[in-house]
């Protein structure tokens, strides 16, 4: 039994399902555009005293991170759906290793997040963000690294919670605070001390910070790119491990 083949087929299945769920893709892209255009223009129109930046360009990596966060965590729903629709039981009686099933699922969710991000990245030129082949590639890698962690987090939640309602509740309690304290909408250094602390505890902040560093380059990175990547790597590894453990315990 080849573990890789099992991971690949689960990944393939989840990607197929994702691509067939057009409304989901459309709604995330549409929401991202609303934030970028309407919110971005509105805030940008105010005179920003302490930070001299093009707000829409500043917002760009933040909105990519938001789309990434939502798509990633939401892919945990597929675990709950599979459980409800009996498909998970069929997976469980195959001789395939459990961790291969989880990894396939996480990779599938992460790929979905990457596809969303790539579409948004290609819009960079509209916002006067010059996306070079290098920064494009760097951003894509960061998106994968960050989304793997958040998809795994979604899977962990799905393993601990039975109902779709419960999952949605946890998700809404998690996503908005994570989004608002990540520095996606405003630079972390202008925030009061207590909010800066929240930002430091929020793994998404490091993703936003790193993406902004490679795509826009201003304001200067709050954490530093090295620390961003290291923190994300630790977060993602821990979440992957937790996802496998909770999945195995549940079965």
């Amino acid at each position: 039994m080849s573990t890789l083949a099992c991971i690949f087929i689960i990944w393939k299945r989840d990607i197929k399902r994702y691509l067939r769920e057009r409304s989901q893709i459309f709604s995330t892209l549409f929401t991202s555009l609303l934030w970028l255009v309407l919110f971005g223009i509105g805030i940008g129109a105010m005179e920003l005293k302490r930070v001299d930046i093009n707000y829409q360009a500043f917002l760009f990596p933040g909105i990519i991170s938001m789309a990434l966060l939502v798509t990633s965590v939401r892919s945990g729903i597929s675990v709950i759906r599979d459980r409800e629709f009996g498909f998970l039981r069929v997976l469980m009686i195959t001789p395939a290793p459990r961790h291969a099933l989880v990894l396939g699922k996480v990779l599938g969710g992460s790929t979905a997040a990457l596809l969303q991000a790539l579409v948004l990245l290609s819009l960079g030129w509209v916002l006067e963000v010059r996306v070079t082949p290098l920064s494009f590639a760097q951003a894509a890698l960061l998106v994968v690294l960050t989304s793997l962690g958040f998809v795994a987090l979604g899977v962990v939640i799905a393993n601990l919670i039975d109902s779709l309602e419960g999952f949605n509740l946890v998700m809404s309690l998690l996503i908005m605070p994570a989004f608002f304290t990540s520095g996606a909408l405003f630079p972390i250094f202008v925030l009061p001390e207590w909010m800066q602390t929240l930002a430091k505890l929020n793994p998404l902040s490091y993703g936003v910070d790193a993406l902004r560093e490679v795509l826009v380059g201003f304001p200067p990175s709050y954490f530093g790119l090295g620390r961003d990547v290291a923190t994300l790597a630790v977060f993602t590894s821990a979440m992957l491990l937790l996802a496998v453990l909770t999945f195995e315990r549940r079965s």
Binding site: S2, F8, I10, K16, R17, G86, V90, A96
Partner: peptide, 28 residues
């Protein structure tokens, strides 16, 4: 063993072939 459960357990969003393909790979 091959098992057919009491409640439906196919992936509705995949074709019959894709359902079988997915599970077939997991059986090696």
């Amino acid at each position: 063993i091959g098992v057919v459960f009491q409640d439906q357990s196919l992936d509705l969003k995949l074709t019959a072939w894709e359902n079988l393909e997915t599970i077939g790979v997991l059986y090696g």
